[in-house]
Design a protein around this nucleic acid. Sequence first.
DNA 1: TATGAATGAGCATTCATTCAT
DNA 2: TATGAATGAATGCTCATTCAT
Lengths: 207, 207, 207, 207
Amino acid sequence: MSAGGRKDRGKDDLRLEILNAARDMFATGTFEEFSMRKLAARIGYSATAIYLHFTDKRDLLNCVCQETFEELSRAIVHLLTRTASPLEAIRAGLKAYVQFGVEHPNHYKVALLLERPRNPDYDSSAATNPGVRIYALLRERLAEGIRCAEIRPLDLDLTAQSIWASVHGLTTLLIIERDFPLENRDRLLEAHASLLIAGVAAKNSTE
Amino acid sequence: MSAGGRKDRGKDDLRLEILNAARDMFATGTFEEFSMRKLAARIGYSATAIYLHFTDKRDLLNCVCQETFEELSRAIVHLLTRTASPLEAIRAGLKAYVQFGVEHPNHYKVALLLERPRNPDYDSSAATNPGVRIYALLRERLAEGIRCAEIRPLDLDLTAQSIWASVHGLTTLLIIERDFPLENRDRLLEAHASLLIAGVAAKNSTE
Amino acid sequence: MSAGGRKDRGKDDLRLEILNAARDMFATGTFEEFSMRKLAARIGYSATAIYLHFTDKRDLLNCVCQETFEELSRAIVHLLTRTASPLEAIRAGLKAYVQFGVEHPNHYKVALLLERPRNPDYDSSAATNPGVRIYALLRERLAEGIRCAEIRPLDLDLTAQSIWASVHGLTTLLIIERDFPLENRDRLLEAHASLLIAGVAAKNSTE
Amino acid sequence: MSAGGRKDRGKDDLRLEILNAARDMFATGTFEEFSMRKLAARIGYSATAIYLHFTDKRDLLNCVCQETFEELSRAIVHLLTRTASPLEAIRAGLKAYVQFGVEHPNHYKVALLLERPRNPDYDSSAATNPGVRIYALLRERLAEGIRCAEIRPLDLDLTAQSIWASVHGLTTLLIIERDFPLENRDRLLEAHASLLIAGVAAKNSTE
DNA sequence: TATGAATGAGCATTCATTCAT
DNA sequence: TATGAATGAATGCTCATTCAT
């Protein structure tokens, strides 16, 4: 967003400026296309300056991603954990997920769309991982919904992943400029959420 | 298929040989890893020779892409048009879509995931466009399903796009290497299709 | 020697021009200090052009070295193999060795003075290796000299290596500009050879 | 020796700490691998701090070098001046010289192998110069040996330089990693010294 | 139709060094 | 005395592309 160059920021904010610029740039290309030099040129610093704040290209990308996941988590977790019915909590979570993507397209692209070299140090099962946390919550609410007969008896992991895939797909389509003319964003999101909720709801559901 | 180099082909077949090799190379590497030089080395011709058949790298890629869409169409259209119930036709189509993506991951990526400058010559509404054709078919079967009460009364475009988004999402997740450990591919696909079918099916459906 | 740039050479002579320039440049620095770009600038071609003739920096250095060893071999072998007495053959060989170094200082520096990453593909015992060939000849003549009592009974390898070390040392000192003022080159070489010959000669030698 | 970082030393000892660390780093890497940044990191100070004690990289290196010469001198001089026979003193000196080089390979390289711009401030004839001192001593003992008939009547300078060249050559070969497999270091050194001593000894020498 | 020779631009990263504090 | 922030230049190498033949 802020296209501002140097000098208009305080002492240590270069790090933030780098992160913001990097996110925007990563969002419009692949990992390989992203170049430290272009980033440097964009923020008006020497390429070397970046290395004072991040050890290398991969580190920079990782930091950008981590930020995103944390924000995404903040946006969704409380909706998934609120006391309403599991089905309604899930519906609210789905919508919030897509909305986050739509409102932070570059964050989302970088963190979830950009293909990048696998990070061997990454512990995908760490409880601290925001993605893991969201997934665990979704799974929990599904289980709860099944227990209270709001939701059909379904395999928890298959269903949770299926739902995630669906909202990820919609987010992706809404974010990436495509030739195909999509319907109105809000109506589409509403319909999508309803479709998925109907897909898991028990048949006698009031849904 | 034929890994044979030059000399074992007729006069003008170099074009085909290039396309075949390019397709294979996309299938085993990322977009950026693909290089005209490596392609040339692989087919045993000079790099220059490629430029006699394709104006540049992008042109070559576009040709590969177009092929992909046609293959995707071939893989799906007959399933969507077969005489079975609309719901079953749609289910079969969904699964075929994902399977195609999984089996041709780099083609799918190039064609549907890769962000690239809009092609001004592209007519997104052309009936000849394979994507358009698939969408139209899906919409038709949905309408038919609604008419025969297999499917709930839903907005056709919202639902068709919602379904497409869902399968696109699953395809994407299955294709792109991610840290998150997904469930078994076939079971996931099965569950996904069932979820979506359940989401659109009429409540008294036998589904 | 030839500082001539491009255009004054024929079709494929770029390779030779590269080799010559590379030798001169390697001779005045370490492997790391040598830069492909500087070489390119020096010969007036793009850096890329070098890679059309040599796969990389190391390959280029290896070629330069190999050339040198072959020339060195040519300069010495016939002297070591001539029919004169072993002692005289050795004396002639020693002097020719040093003279080669003095007359081709850059060749010598690159091949025998420059510290460089070990080449794992290098077979130091290959009979085709000119250095090995010279060493083997020296060893042979020593053996012969011992048999005919011109030379004291000495360990062949220790002596051959010791002699080589000595002439290498003198060559080095004569080549590298040093602050210390050496004696007249020819007299020094003469004295050096005599010292070494006296060192190995049998006591009753007429030497 | 002390690997301890900062804070465990007095006020102005940073200079010493830098010199010590620099010496150690030279000993385990090549000239180019040495970097001011790595040095700074190693001693736990900022890179800038080094510049408060040495004007630049070269200055730092020169200081390390000078130290080296002084150590070399210390290691040899007393051997050359001891009361034993001139021949034995020279033999001991030769061996000590090579041994010093082998034990301080990077110091030797930097001081005697590395080609670098001539230092205009350097007075090669200054009596304080440790190299000059060693040379003078060698020359003296040769003269003495000739006087007492232990040594053949030889030109003093030619012979001294010839001997120096020989030990320098052996030191060089032993220091620089080469593809050629040399004999056992100690035996080679022994043989080398004996060869040179035999080369200068009078024929009736008991050697 | 096909090539060999060549190029300019680009890459991530490291370096010695400087400067304001 | 010491630092943190920053830089310009340099590195080996790969790329898509062009051009004369």
